[in-house]
Nucleic acid binder design. Sequence first.
RNA 1: GCCGGCGUGGCGCAAUUGGUAGCGCAUCCGACUUGUAAUCGGAAGGUUAGGGGUUCGAGUCCCCUCGCCGGCUCCA
Length: 666
Amino acid sequence: MTVLSAGSGSGGATRTVTTGTRAWELFADDPEVVAARVNGELRDLSRELASADEVEPVSIDSTAGRDILRHSTAHVLAQAVQQLFPEARLGIGPPVVDGFYYDFDVAEPFRPDDVEHIESRMRKIVKEGQRFDRRAVTDAQARDELAAEPYKLMLVDLKGAAKPDDGSSVEVGAGELTLYDNVRRDGSVAWTDLCRGPHLPTTKRIPAFRLLRTAAAYWRGNEQNPQLQRIYGTAWESKEALDAHLHRLQEAQRRDHRRLGAELDLFSFPDEIGSGLAVFHPKGGVLRKTMEDYSRRRHEEAGYEFVYTPHLTKAGLFETSGHLQWFADGMFPPIRIDEERDADGQVRKPGQDYYLKPMNCPMHCLVFGSRGRSYRELPLRLFEFGTVYRNEKSGVVHGLTRVRGLTMDDAHIFCSREQLRGELTTLLVFVLDLLRDYGLEDFYLELSTKDPDKYVGDDAVWDEATDTLAEVAAASGLELVPDPGGAAFYGPKISVQARDAIGRTWQMSTIQLDFNLPERFGLDYTAADGSRQRPVMIHRALFGSIERFIGVLTEHYAGAFPPWLSPVQVVGIPIAERHAEHLDDVASRLRGQGVRVEVDRSDDRMQKKIRSAQLQKVPYMLIAGDRDVDDAAVSFRYLDGEQDNGVSIEVAVDRIVTAVRERRAR
RNA sequence: GCCGGCGUGGCGCAAUUGGUAGCGCAUCCGACUUGUAAUCGGAAGGUUAGGGGUUCGAGUCCCCUCGCCGGCUCCA
């Protein structure tokens, strides 16, 4: 037998033990070890080993170890729930990122104080130190023991067909069925669940956990299935790790763009307008305008041409594009213009349906098709901050990240097949460069490829395009995550995922090939040899939606935008009223250089003014008192509390203007 | 769309078993003029999201609508 050190994957000391040894005997002196990886497969510490086995300890603070901890905690949750609510039927209880959940079928949904009771019952179970005891059973035995658990019975029927992505694989694997008994110290069985394991040796080995929230969830993730009540929780290898996680949750809350949007007076969602429809206030407006202006400039430099198209169109356009056939339920219902009849009842003007546009591409196709096109015009890059409306389902609307009215920084590139490779290469570089300029640094790519059952277009073109995307992605040096079958029916796609300041990932830009729309719109151009050729179309958006991008940046920066984006860049704070004039002079010099600056002339005390500017997250506070006035200087205070006193006005203005121009962090 | 929770001045929160809607911040006015995160005093501000019902009486109980929050499903 070979015993490896945790996480080593290879090497390690070789120890000879007899068959029948149990894994825990090997790691008895290490309390962190909660399971074993035997020949690459996770096993309970109590499982017997064979002499040829390669055994690696699994530590509770490893990824696999935490999953086991969380899954075991989910069992404790389920036991607690069934003790308190004997009629509750069990769904599934897998570990998820940073935690776990368990689904229950109960007559009454859980209430907040139920959760408290459940949690304290769980603590009792943990204290009891129940052993997790594995027992292999036949299908018939399992059905017999689980007769009262209809959902578990369904899982038994699904055995082998369990999808890895719906969580059911934690209950049943492809091999034999197993039950886990929770055995008390006195040998009595407290509770049993269908589960493939592995588990912690005992409940006592759960160092720290917390129940977080309840919610409804469809059985096996399908809307057609009944809804179960889900309880979410988290569990960690130590109290400190749990606290750190709860602190991260708090941090995410502190950064919530909905909260910061109100605090910083950036935007709001007036009930009077409707769900998912934002208005930008002056401070959010200047932020947005700055973002857009910079984007426009970069697009201009990169050879894009600007177009403008209306928000509303007759139904026919979306019949041509196919949107009405595919996505009608995501579109707002039509505005019906009734037909008009004359006195004789003859139709004078036929009725018409008009739709709010959910996408800009059909309009851009019309621009391309508005006259004959030459190969000399390609690639033709049409750009628009195009506002679109999507009838998002009521339950999904969420701050700025999921809205019903949004503005895409949308472009459609029409090029020849020969140009595709070059265009995609420069495009990806352009996209990443621009995102970096806005302060996102950490990316990975996702390549969505053909769903063989659902696509249009020529296989050869698909292959070529997909290969090109893959090459371009590889050349970027970024991590590439394949998403097989994830492409839309009309073409493959690369999406850029960005990690923010606290490590969350957001889907940002998409670069999507389209073999469908040029066909549907009958677009063509005259090639050098005089033949008519069909262009390939690339859809691309960097921000995705500007609203959402503002939301993401707000959370990324926790509202403390870098100077170039900050709605108010400088606040002048006079120590006494007599110093205000001096700051007005400085302010007007800054304003002359395009800096957004205010002088706080309120009758608050200076300390209060600092606090106000701090809460508004203004990057530069310029403070002036007698000393500064005498020296023709100002004193800097930055958001981190650092000061730089007695800086000459000359230097101060230059420092700020330079930081803004170069988009520096401060 | 589904399940649950919630909706009280601009914001954050109070309001015994159904019995006169309060507080802090912000706002406005006045006083004060102070070197790095909250000076003091005063005033104004609410048909308790909207509509309907029960009741002598509803912020509180019931129904509907709208909106928000947490999930599920969805996201061209």
